[in-house]
C-alpha cells in the first residue's frame, strides 16, 4: 500500500531548525502568545490597552507586545507573555481567539533580506499597506518587521511547506550572489 505521508516533507524540529546561507539566516520563533481579535477595535484598545492600529505589510513592530493588522476589523496580537484577557466574545463588541497553536512564526534576517522578500511576494516592501496579511511564497501569511528582522506567521499546517520553500529560496539567492 502506498504511503501517502511520503508526499509531504517532514516538519523539522523547530527548536533547533535554522537556514543559514551567506546573507540570510532564518529561524522559527517559538513560545510567543498569539491572539486573534475581531470586531470593534476601539473597544479592544480600551479594554486591553493594546494598540488598535497594528503594523501593516512590512511595517515595523516594536516592543514585546504589539499588534499586526489583518483586516479592517481584525488584529493579530503577539506578546512574550499571555495577555490577561479571556478568549471568547466580549460584550464591549469584540471577540478574542487564542491562535498560538495555530500559527507558526519565522524570523529572517541578513543582507539578502530584500532578495528574499522579492522572491516571496510581488508587493513593494517600501510601499505602506494597511494590512500585514499578504500572499508570501504562494500562501497566506502575516508579514512585518521587528528589530530589523522579517517576521512571517503562517498556518501551522503550511509551516513545513514554507520551510522547504525558504530553504530553496535561500539556496538560490546564495548561488546567484556567488556568480
Amino acid at each position: 500500500m502506498r504511503d501517502l505521508a511520503e508526499k509531504w516533507s517532514v516538519a523539522p524540529d523547530w527548536q533547533g531548525a535554522v537556514i543559514a546561507t551567506p546573507g540570510l539566516a532564518i529561524r522559527a520563533v517559538l513560545d510567543l502568545s498569539q491572539l486573534l481579535v475581531s470586531g470593534d477595535l476601539d473597544a479592544w484598545a480600551r479594554v486591553s490597552g493594546v494598540d488598535r492600529t497594528g503594523v501593516g505589510a512590512f511595517g515595523t513592530a516594536q516592543g514585546d507586545r504589539y499588534a499586526a493588522r489583518l483586516a479592517r476589523d481584525r488584529l493579530l496580537i503577539v506578546s512574550n507573555s499571555p495577555l490577561a484577557i479571556a478568549s471568547g466574545w466580549h460584550t464591549d463588541g469584540f471577540a478574542v481567539t487564542a491562535i498560538s497553536a495555530g500559527l507558526q512564526m519565522f524570523e529572517a534576517e541578513g543582507t539578502a533580506l530584500d532578495a528574499f522578500i522579492a522572491r516571496g511576494t510581488t508587493l513593494d516592501p517600501s510601499q505602506a499597506s494597511a494590512s500585514a496579511a499578504l500572499s508570501f511564497a504562494g500562501i497566506s501569511a502575516v508579514v512585518y518587521r521587528r528589530d530589523g528582522k522579517l517576521r512571517i506567521h503562517v498556518d501551522r499546517g503550511l509551516a513545513a511547506y514554507l520551510w522547504t520553500w525558504m530553504e530553496i529560496a535561500a539556496g538560490n539567492i546564495a548561488a546567484g550572489s556567488a556568480k
Binding site: 501593516g56 505589510a57 483586516a71 479592517r72 511576494t121 510581488t122 508587493l123 510601499q127 505602506a128 499597506s129 494597511a130 494590512s131 496579511a133 499578504l134 500572499s135
Partner: peptide, 10 residues
C-alpha cells in the same frame, strides 16, 4: 480599499 494596491492573484 483597505490595503491599497495588491497583486491580482490576491
Amino acid at each position: 480599499p483597505f490595503c491599497g494596491p495588491r497583486d491580482e492573484t490576491e
